[in-house]
C-alpha cells in the first residue's frame, strides 16, 4: 500500500515537472529564461538577450532596439564599413554615388547658435508604426513581430513608394544586376532595401554588425525587457528619437543630439 502511494507521488512529481517545464517554455517563448523563480512558471524577471530557438516564430514579447551614444566620439565610418562587409554592399559597378545602396548614412548636425556639432549614423529607425509598411502596395515592406522593419524582396515590385514615405531617407533602390551577393543578404535589381538590423545575426544570437564595430557607443537589446542594458540606459539618460514629432516610436534612439 505504502509503496503504491510513494509510486503515485513520484508519478505526481514527474507530471508536475513536465507541466512546469511546459509552462516555463510557453511563458518565455523563444527567449532565454534566466530569472528568479517566484513560483512554478512565474518569473520575477525575464532576461532576453538573444534568440536561441530559431525553430519557433518570433513574438512581440521582444522588441529589438539600438541606442546610439553620439557623445562618444566614435568614427561612425567603422560601423558603415562593418555593415557593408556584413551585407556585401558597395558591389555596384554602374550606379552613381547617389544611387548606391547605403544602409547607414553618417550625418553631421550643427547647432548654428552655439557651434556644437556632432555626427551620427542614421539607418532605418525600425518604427513601431512604420510609414513604409503603411504605403506598400504588395505587403513587401514589413515589420517582423519583434520590431524589425525590412523588405521581403520576394514581394517587392520596386515601386519605391516606401522610399518616398520614409522620413529618415533610410531606403535604397538597387539599379543594376548584381552578382556574388552575401549568402545571408540576397539582394538584386529592382528591389528596395534597407537596414534589417542584421536580422540574420540576431537570429544567430549575435548583435548587429554596426553595434559590434561601434566600440561601445551603440547598445543593442530588448526594449520590452526592463532589465536589459538598453532599457537601463534609456531609463537614466535623456535620449531622443529623430523626428519624434511624427510619433513613430522608433526602435533606434540617440543620445547627445
Amino acid at each position: 500500500m505504502s509503496s503504491k502511494a510513494s509510486n503515485q507521488t513520484t508519478e505526481q512529481s514527474k507530471t508536475d515537472l513536465t507541466k512546469r517545464k511546459f509552462l516555463s517554455g510557453t511563458v518565455t517563448g523563444s527567449m532565454v529564461a534566466a530569472g528568479v523563480s517566484v513560483a512554478p512558471g512565474i518569473f520575477l524577471t525575464q532576461v532576453a538577450q538573444a534568440r536561441t530557438n530559431t525553430s519557433a516564430a518570433v513574438t512581440s514579447d521582444v522588441r529589438w532596439g539600438i541606442v546610439i551614444d553620439t557623445t562618444k566620439k566614435v568614427d561612425w565610418n567603422k560601423c558603415v564599413d562593418a555593415c557593408n562587409r556584413e551585407h556585401g554592399l558597395g558591389n555596384e559597378t554602374k550606379s552613381n554615388q547617389e544611387q548606391k545602396t547605403e544602409y547607414i548614412r553618417v550625418v553631421k548636425v550643427k547647432n548654428k547658435t552655439t557651434g556644437y556639432s556632432s555626427t551620427l549614423p542614421v539607418m532605418c529607425q525600425h518604427c513601431e508604426t512604420p510609414p513604409c509598411v503603411d504605403v506598400c502596395p504588395t505587403g513587401a515592406s514589413m515589420k517582423r513581430e519583434d520590431g524589425i522593419v525590412y523588405v521581403d524582396r520576394h514581394l517587392c515590385i520596386g515601386c519605391r513608394y516606401c522610399m518616398m514615405a520614409c522620413p529618415y531617407k533610410a531606403r535604397s533602390f538597387v539599379h543594376e544586376t548584381l552578382t556574388d551577393q552575401k549568402e545571408n543578404t540576397p539582394r538584386g535589381k529592382g528591389c528596395v532595401e534597407s537596414c534589417n538590423m542584421c536580422v540574420n545575426r540576431i537570429d544567430q544570437g549575435l548583435k548587429p554588425a554596426c553595434v559590434d564595430a561601434s566600440e561601445g557607443a551603440m547598445i543593442f537589446g530588448d526594449l520590452n525587457d526592463k532589465s536589459s542594458e538598453i532599457s537601463k540606459f534609456l531609463a537614466i539618460q535623456n535620449t531622443k528619437q529623430i523626428r519624434a514629432d511624427l510619433r513613430l516610436n522608433t526602435g533606434v534612439r540617440y543620445q547627445g543630439i
Binding site: 530559431t54 525553430s55 518570433v58 514589413m142 517582423r144 513581430e145 521581403d152 520576394h154 536580422v199 537570429d203
Partner: peptide
C-alpha cells in the same frame, strides 16, 4: 521562404 522571412523560423526543432 515565407516562414523564414515573415516569422523568423530558420531551423527545424532539432536544429
Amino acid at each position: 521562404r515565407n516562414s523564414t522571412m515573415r516569422e523568423g523560423i530558420r531551423t527545424l526543432s532539432d536544429g
